[in-house]
């Protein structure tokens, strides 16, 4: 971590919950072992995150970053340990948890044959969200106007990513799980994404973010966690409190 990163962190930290109050724990992973096939993708991982935090997960390819995010959404079988998300045990309360979290993975989970607006509308209504927030969300991600009624199949990879983000913003879940969100976006889109993430965090959303664009992601992160070999190796949470 460079000194420049710490300077950049300052404005985000101001928007975090005021000092003294303990932020609500939204994600708690305890000694999690997740085996994909015969491969232990997570080998006893501990991680906690509270509301308003933007946690950057970094580490080499195959370290287990994507698995952490998918495990928080209940998409990965857990052999040992346990995960609680938004106060619910993931094994029991998957459905209600999933309404309140948003996972944006390598795939954008959009229906090719529906328009931009239809896609966002379905996502919002499925999560029992507020449909009135859709127009503003589309505008915020710059996919309103002409693109709104266009089929998703006609969009570029970057535009799709913006649509998926617009759905996330419109739904407004309390936990965002973003897997390489900067990939495929143009410089403007990356800046926009950073703004959107910071805004969400300021409103109390927890953001777990896996990214290889470390310089950019560190700027918006309030914490950096290094994952290697399926467990947390270093966690910057202590550093920040000291500084």
């Amino acid at each position: 971590m460079s000194v420049a990163d710490d300077v950049q962190l300052a404005p985000v930290k101001m928007t975090a919950p005021p000092a003294g109050t303990v932020p609500e724990v939204t994600v708690a992973m305890r000694s999690v072992v997740a085996v994909l096939g015969v491969f232990p993708a997570l080998s006893g991982l501990d991680l906690q995150a509270g509301s308003g935090e933007v946690v950057l997960l970094r580490g080499p390819n195959g370290a287990g970053k994507t698995t952490v995010l998918r495990a928080c959404a209940g998409l990965v079988p857990i052999q040992r340990g346990d995960i609680s998300v938004l106060g619910c045990d993931l094994r029991k309360d998957r459905r209600s948890v999933r309404r309140r979290i948003g996972l944006l993975g390598h795939a954008t989970s959009l229906y090719e044959d529906l328009t931009v607006e239809q896609n966002v509308r379905f996502a919002v209504r499925a999560a029992a969200g507020d449909v009135d927030r859709i127009p503003a969300a589309l505008e915020r991600l710059d996919v309103g106007g002409r693109l709104r009624t266009l089929g998703v199949m006609h969009l570029s990879a970057g535009q799709r990513r913006r649509v998926a983000l617009a759905a996330l913003v419109a739904r407004g879940p309390r936990l965002w799980l973003l897997d390489e969100p900067h990939a495929g976006l143009d410089p403007d889109g990356r800046d926009l994404l950073d703004e959107v993430i910071s805004e969400a965090a300021a409103a109390g959303t927890t953001v777990l973010l896996a990214s290889h664009d470390v310089d950019r992601a560190t700027r918006i992160a309030s914490r950096v966690v290094l994952i290697t070999g399926g467990r947390v190796v270093t966690d910057s949470v202590g550093d920040h409190h000291v500084s």
Partner: peptide, 19 residues
């Protein structure tokens, strides 16, 4: 197959809809 487009096999599961 419409649920598998764009590698989005998880979309319905993640939607929070009643199975």
């Amino acid at each position: 197959s419409i649920e598998e487009e764009d590698g989005a096999g998880d979309a319905l599961r993640l939607s929070g809809l009643d199975p």
